[in-house]
């Protein structure tokens, strides 16, 4: 297929400016059986995340007697993409995303408080439109907060890419397919520590520097959306009591 021009007169194909994200909506506890859960709509991405635990780590050889172990499973529903039917379950991409996502939460969860246990984080992509790992991390972060598991920060993630020699924030699937670089980043908003950073394509050192700055700036909106969702949920509960 011919590569479409991704930016025309400073506007992207869906009308956004280079530094503008898609709409993000988060709701709390859609999965009643879980310790905590969250649902995110990020542009056309629809992702649900649920947390179970802390609970006894099984099988036993996975236990760590000094801290909780975090286990993460990111999967995409076979009907989630606009393209053909996908295979359910874990492929190599999902294994890698699960691993780097697990590492994000190892960084913030106070695992020392729950030795011998596991905390399971499930991320299920129900509909995908680019940037699902970032949206999944943002969502799982809220699910962990809703489960009451103590964390030292509430990470967010968003991806920055490059098209027509311009850095663009939060690429959708079409942009992702034809861009010259993609760099998903997860950050602890309180300390600005980088928790996840992946990249492929071509970027100069200056572009990497500027990309990280764009992500940190975008984090103000994402963090507010995360907090507002939690706040609204618990205010509703308070009103009922």
């Amino acid at each position: 297929m011919e590569k479409p021009t991704l930016i025309i007169n400073g506007k992207r194909l869906d009308g956004r400016d280079p530094g503008t994200m898609r709409q993000i909506k988060i709701s709390i506890n859609p999965i009643k059986n879980a310790s905590g859960s969250a649902y995110i709509e990020w542009g056309n991405n629809k992702i649900v995340s649920a947390v179970y635990g802390p609970r006894e780590a099984l099988p036993r050889h996975t236990q760590d007697l000094n801290k909780a172990v975090i286990k993460c499973r990111y999967t995409m529903a076979p009907f989630s993409s606009l393209e053909e039917h996908g295979r359910p379950g874990m492929n190599r991409r999902a294994i890698e995303i699960s691993k780097v996502t697990k590492e994000v939460f190892e960084n913030v969860v106070l695992t020392d408080l729950f030795p011998g246990t596991e905390i399971n984080i499930f991320i299920e992509v129900l509909q995908s439109d680019g940037g699902t790992r970032a949206a999944g991390i943002t969502c799982a972060s809220v699910a962990l907060a809703a489960s009451g598991i103590p964390m030292r920060d509430m990470p967010f993630a968003v991806s920055v890419g490059k098209a027509e020699n311009t850095l663009i924030l939060d690429m959708d699937k079409t942009e992702d397919n034809y861009s010259t670089a993609d760099m998903p980043i997860a950050i602890n908003p309180r300390t600005k520590e980088i928790n996840l950073l992946q990249m492929d394509g071509e970027l100069t050192s200056e572009e990497i520097h500027r990309g990280i700055e764009m992500v940190i700036k975008a984090g103000e909106i994402i963090t507010k959306t995360q907090k507002d969702a939690l706040l609204e949920h618990y205010q509703k509960i308070e009103e009922r009591i």
């Binding site: 980088i194 992946q198 492929d200 071509e202």
Partner: peptide, 9 residues
Amino acid sequence: HFVRAMQKG
């Protein structure tokens, strides 16, 4: 000329 791939672990 370019950074081509990055991975934090």
